[in-house]
Nucleic acid binder design. Structure first.
Lengths: 336, 336
DNA sequence: ATCATTACTGGAAACGTTTCCAGCAACAAA
DNA sequence: TTTGTTGCTGGAAACGTTTCCAGTAATGAT
């Protein structure tokens, strides 16, 4: 069943059928109705390959996810997927590990699948213009902003929270409760990442409140998963380092740390308060319920797609959308 | 840069280039090398749409996920994705909610995207042959087996655990520790689901050990997420129903139940033991660590793809692959 | 010397769309 | 009556591959 068959059956030309399918205005109501009837009757769906071929593009948008073990991404992925779907795009997802380079992956996908655009979910945030130059389709960074070198770069589109400020906010929640000995649980993997920005916020908060910054209180772990955070925290505690509060840059990490603290006989929040950022589902169900700055995941997903769609459509210029978190008070912090 | 350009530059015909690209045997070593050199030099990638068009198929495999809120799926999705990637397929994922019908979704995707095959991840397990007949490409059920009516149906391919038996195993862990008043936390949504099978295992275990089956001890919740399980358990406790152990059919649910128990002042495992099935990452980090029958997620993903690839290739017949769980002892059970 | 076989090659049709272009009818303006 | 203009339509080229078919040259068998 092809467009030709539809044309033959409805007694019009192939081009007319095509016009009907694509909602072109210059077709008479009569023809349109006739053709639509036939299409419905045979529930015809146009061949995508043929369309893509002649239009020299596809309807595919790539989603490149770094570190899917981060539960936080699950909701965002879902949100991105449904938004793409509604907008008529097809999502082609690729998850990459710590050894892979997302630009290389994106470039090969772009050529291979004729992508219309790309969304990067999680990842480094220090792509150089040269690296990015290999991409020929629009792209949007989700959950982070590209900031090559030291300066914020406004040539790229993104949806993210203000990592540094939000981290500062989180740490100030602890400071406001009287904490002075605050550890930070961050990721060590790359320097210009979300982790780094949140770490900077941590430092800024300490400095703003005239608290000493002690690098021995910085717990560095490999990745955003629970295991690494658990092990790093455990190691730090075994080294004898002590603190009255921990700021973890992600819920996943906080959960890992919680176990380490527990196993070391350190009660949360009795002996040690804990706050983090993200707001994943499980953080609300553990004991004690985690206090966390929740990110608006659905919104972030949708906005990423909106932005990308505008870039693909040619309308709209680059913009860095900043969304804000809201504190979900659990029971993992106490006054000191 | 098209195949024509390659042909022109290397001084052969288009058809020869095509043969080289597709590794056809009947092309001279000399021509092959010449063409390959040009392809490499211009790092040419053939246009997928054109290939798909003429071959009247694509390289896409659909992954239809029901209930992505189930953290358990994250690892499987990852595993499926990398296996598909290695095998040269493109994964097109669609998540569906409780109101959507996966067969309808699959059928439209199949036609729309010219899928080669479909993997269903999670879902009802009572598709009738008539329903499934609308699909014209091979498909594999992952995490469940289709069993229309009462009998196991061997006309379909699947990778799953033996839900009934595994559930029985789990409940027997509780019984072995002296528990007699065992609640079951299941999903109420559909009757022929994984939930139902695991429930049957629960009943079977009770009967095998001459324990009464009391329907008031069955906690039914809407979906596999923590919130529903939490609320359902809370409600049940408020009704005054008591038990010394809970068998939850999924880790996600167990975590929801744990909070409800905690809030009701019921200590796990002191007052109530808890076991479930899945083995999601976070279950190892909560307090008490959850005892659970872990499923081999990576293996399940890979096997699903293997199976599908064989079906697509035309080799291999339908088979129901059963994988087994292993008990990960946490601290959520105690002897009574 | 002739014929059959083999190994390779090029030409061309096909896949199912979109889109450009030309054409036709109807109608309004001159 | 002629000349534009508008609204709609059909024909045909194009998109970039794969694959069938016919053809050539070289080799081997008779």
């Amino acid at each position: 069943m092809t467009i030709k068959d539809i044309a033959r059956i409805s007694g019009v030309a192939v081009s007319t059928v095509s016009r009907v399918i694509n909602n072109h205005p210059d077709v008479s109501a009569e023809s349109r109705e006739k053709v639509m009837a036939v299409i419905r009757e045979h529930n015809f769906i146009p061949n995508n390959s043929a369309r893509d071929l002649v239009r020299t593009k596809s309807d595919a948008v790539g989603l490149i996810v770094r570190g899917s073990q981060n539960t936080f991404f699950v909701d965002i992925i879902h949100s991105i997927e449904s938004a793409l779907d509604e907008a008529g795009y097809t999502m082609v997802m690729r998850q990459i590990g710590s050894n892979d380079d997302e630009i290389t992956c994106a470039a090969s996908m772009e050529r291979d699948k004729r992508l219309l655009g790309i969304i990067f979910l999680g990842g480094r945030s220090d792509y150089s213009p040269e690296e990015l130059a290999v991409l020929t389709v629009p792209y949007v960074f989700c959950t982070f902003t590209n900031s090559y070198g030291t300066l914020k770069n406004t040539n790229y589109s993104s949806v993210s929270i203000a990592d540094e400020e939000e981290a500062m906010k989180a740490v100030e929640e602890l400071i406001g409760r009287g904490h002075k000995d605050i550890a930070a649980l961050i990721s060590a993997s790359d320097d210009h990442s979300i982790s780094q920005l949140r770490y900077l916020g941590y430092v800024k908060a300490l400095k703003a409140h005239k608290l000493p910054v002690d690098d021995s209180r910085v717990i560095r772990c490999g990745s955003f998963n629970m295991k690494d955070a658990y092990e790093a925290t455990k190691k730090k505690l075994e080294e004898g380092v002590r603190f009255t509060a921990v700021f973890a840059i992600a819920d996943n990490m906080a959960i890992g740390a919680m176990r380490a603290l527990r196993e070391a006989g350190i009660d949360v929040p009795g002996d040690c308060s804990l706050i983090s950022i993200d707001g994943i589902e499980v953080s609300e169900y553990i004991d004690p319920m985690l206090s966390t700055l929740t990110q608006p995941m659905k919104e972030m997903g949708r906005k990423s797609v909106e932005q990308l769609a505008e870039l693909i459509g040619g309308t709209g210029k680059h913009s860095q959308i900043t969304v804000t978190t809201s504190l979900r008070e659990g029971a993992s912090m106490r006054n000191i």
